[in-house]
């Protein structure tokens, strides 16, 4: 098991946001976390990587309990996180953005070099010296994934990678994620676009009002239109 989360509860000030969230990701698996805006997807990811100050529960990554670790320690163990709004360092060049993400190689994770990343995202190779602020949204999304991969993670949490991108770019994103999977990376994606999810994922969780309300394979989900309609409103 790559990642296993048990009884995760999170709070922002007085507000209780996540209720006993439990989920896991197997080695080399691509798992989806589906749900509407405000259902708790981003908070789940942020809680796992320690960006939510008030949380309780058990988060086991590669057999080690990281629940009490600070964000940077979790990340340097090989748990990569790609946030929702891309959050590129807009004043830094592509090369510098990648430099921030650079970490030593890990035995149990695929290794990435700049060259390998540039072949995964060919657009980036042409703009190494360009600052992040002068890139289009699609290019920024690729850079933010590449930046996280520079840390040679063994698991990546991708928060809504298709949001706000042109359909054609989303198709490129599908290719990139499938390549990452072939390299042996475990991936968890939060999404609203079920079609995108179908193209890349093995399993899915559905989160609603801070609680996990469905867990199963993609075909399990297709067999339950009631759940799909109730929580994804498709």
């Amino acid at each position: 098991m790559k990642l296993s989360v048990e009884a995760l509860n999170s709070y922002y000030g007085p507000a209780h946001i996540l209720f006993d969230v439990a989920l896991d990701v197997g080695d080399g698996e691509v798992v989806a976390l589906l749900g509407r805006n405000g259902a708790g997807k981003s908070t789940t990811f942020r809680s796992i990587v320690g960006l939510v100050a008030q949380r309780s529960g058990r988060i086991v990554f590669e057999g080690r309990d990281v629940s009490d670790q600070p964000t940077h320690a979790i990340a340097s163990r090989g748990l990569g996180y790609v946030p929702e709004e891309r959050r590129i360092f807009t004043d830094l060049t592509v090369d510098e953005n990648l430099e921030v993400g650079r970490q030593p190689a890990r035995p149990n994770a695929p290794q990435w070099t700049r060259e390998k990343l540039f072949s995964l995202f060919p657009n980036l190779a042409e703009m190494r010296g360009r600052t992040g602020g002068r890139m289009s949204g699609g290019e920024q999304q690729m850079l933010t994934i590449a930046r996280t991969l520079m840390g040679n993670p063994s698991l990546v949490l991708l928060d809504e990678p298709s949001e706000g991108l042109a359909p054609r770019i989303v198709e490129q994103m599908v290719e990139a994620i499938l390549t990452m999977k072939r390299e042996g990376l475990s991936i968890m994606v939060s999404e609203q676009n079920l079609h995108f999810t179908r193209l890349i994922c093995d399993r899915a969780y559905i989160i609603e009002r801070g609680r996990i309300c469905f867990s199963g394979t993609m075909s399990d989900l297709d067999a339950r239109p009631d759940i799909r309609d109730a929580h994804l409103a498709l």
Binding site: S162, A166, P167, R168, I169, V170, E171, V174, N193, L194, H195, F196, L199, L234
Partner: peptide, 16 residues
């Protein structure tokens, strides 16, 4: 070619 792509990620959903 420039924007919509092959329709993998929206077409089917639109029909639904």
């Amino acid at each position: 070619a420039i924007y919509l792509g092959e329709g993998l990620v929206y077409d089917a959903r639109h029909r639904e």
